[in-house]
Design a protein around this nucleic acid. Structure first.
Lengths: 198, 198, 198, 198
DNA sequence: TATGAATGAGAATTCATTCAT
DNA sequence: CATGAATGAATTCTCATTCAT
């Protein structure tokens, strides 16, 4: 069993985050990660099964943090509407906070059907289900329409935020600020584009 | 100069579509594409610069068709609301129609920093701008709220549809049918989740 | 049997001379020669066995001309001393006259042990033997020292001229003019470096 | 950074010497060199940049030795005439001592426009300048004619020796022994072919 | 634990040559 | 005779992973 604690483990994760973001997973060399982490090539394999495992571990580690942050932020709000708004804002802020990680998750992890198909992405599903919970809650509270299918809505909402992040991650500059984008996107979902809708 | 017409060119494109969808771009071997297309390895290079060029060409070819179809479908509707609904339905139908192509575009091309950064993705931007146009039209018609920022809304709407497609592409079965999903997603955007919104 | 006459044969030889001089034999592509000669790739093979054969034929053709010129020039002189001087001058002039051919013979044909070992280089030996003949003649006339071994001297003299040519062929500019170089080199061989020698 | 010391580096150099001499540079496979050196293919690239680098390194290594030997031998003689004689003898002896290396330098390296043009052949120029120095010294001592141009003479003398070596390297047997050939060639240069010259 | 030299499988691409037209 | 599209063999170099120290 690999040692998941200790200084070196996190040094390697952080080094990998830099290198993957810079070169992309396929073009990143394990030896570059080792160099960045100031360990020997072979040392990597005391902490990770293989190169894939570095990427997955990186993702798991980061999602753990993101999940925790998001749950904490959402729990501060009681109202489902506020929760949706808070989710959008927090998501985009988290992306902004760690662009490297965001880029890797966006670009590398989802890139490969290998990862998306073979790796049962539990953390991501948990993250999505935070939205699911909010929607169901809203429906139970009688705030959200009962005909909304949460399984679809959660993906639609996440997809909307995610596409925005991708745009930011891949462009060098942001045309719109985070608060505006979050407000807009949660606005569409909550109240629609149509005037006097309902 | 590469020969972009003729039988072989399309045989290779089609073979590549299959192989990329199955193995992923990086793990796909040019020789496998050749085998699938029933041509010699070297023949590939009479029609394409290199492996990257196959992927880009595949994308360009397909987007041309998709763009055409989408424009035709949308032009049938006059009302901005109907156009949004039609866009959602048509998008999901097109994905359904050619899962392999969808998977490649989803997973290999759009996600890859290599391609997304270095390759100025004109067709994709054109596709997004179809949404932009509808929203502006809706605003001009006084149907859509004027505070909507089309540049954000187009990405949010596309992202929502796209995440749904990814889900379908990567899962083996569809939990919801296309019409339902399209109706739901366009519904969120048009009228919001909130009861009596507006 | 390949057709060794006709317009196309010489067009190809000339095209190959250009292309080999520019790219080197190994890096020259048959298709480039074809393009330069304004014939189809396949047409080359109606006139030559293969790529090697082009090089050998080119050499044979050129050496035929060079041999003829040299024999004619030498025959104009009666005196062995004058003949040596004439040989040096003519050799360097011929090199100068056709730098491309010279470069190929220098660089490509002799480069490969393949050619030098397997290809019995008759023309070259004939060329060397012109020197041999002059030396023997000089010895018979009592002008040249009888202890000179013509088999060694011919190579030494040729080598001296050849090294000078290589220097010219590979540098872009000539530091010394042809007449000076020829006079110097034949001078060394005829009279030596040592003052009051003999 | 490549490791230029140690056992493996020289094992690879020696293996390459054999393989290049046998097959010629272009036809030599890196994997053959690896096999001959009893290392893995990849190991070659821990010690050399690429295949070209093996050839260049081989040349540099050998020229270092040859230059050293030649300088030592020449320094033993005080007289310019003796030095010329010693140069000729030593050159041919060194060639004889390592035929493989000689063949590679003769055939592969010096002949290749690729290497001769792109690779600034410092060692070779240093070697040539040993002759230059002797000639100038002889002129200063009043032994050699002052009208001799050392820049031409050094090439002529080297060329003469070199052509003799090429002949030996490419033939399987030697018609003349080294001492005779050296004596003859230095004799031509020192005293000329002509009787009672000077 | 840690190292890093060594391994060797693996794949894209080139281009001389062929042959159906 | 001429063409040029098609072939497919052939080879360098990379880099994840191992293992002796």
């Amino acid at each position: 069993m690999k040692n998941r604690n200790g200084d070196k483990y996190h040094r390697i994760i952080n080094a990998a985050t830099k290198v993957f973001a810079k070169r992309g997973f396929f073009h990143a060399k394990v030896s570059d990660i080792a160099k960045e982490a100031h360990v020997a090539d072979g040392t990597i394999y005391l902490y990770f099964e293989n190169k894939d495992d570095i990427l997955i571990s990186l993702f798991e580690e980061q999602m753990q943090v993101v999940l925790g942050n998001m749950m904490e932020e959402i729990s501060k709000e009681k109202d489902a509407v506020k929760k949706i708004e808070k989710f959008a804002l927090t998501h985009l802020k988290l992306i902004e906070l760690n662009k490297n990680v965001a880029e890797i998750i966006q670009v590398e992890l989802r890139q490969s059907s290998k990862f998306m198909k073979e790796y049962k992405n539990e953390r991501f599903l948990q993250y999505l289900n935070l939205i699911d919970d909010i929607i169901k809650e809203g429906q139970e509270q009688g705030i959200f329409k009962k005909e909304i299918i949460p399984g679809i809505a959660k993906r639609a909402f996440f997809g909307a935020l995610d596409e925005m992040s991708r745009f930011w991650v891949l462009s060098s500059h942001k045309k719109y600020d985070i608060e505006t984008a979050a407000k807009q996107i949660s606005g569409y979902f909550l109240y629609g584009l149509v005037k006097n809708a309902g």
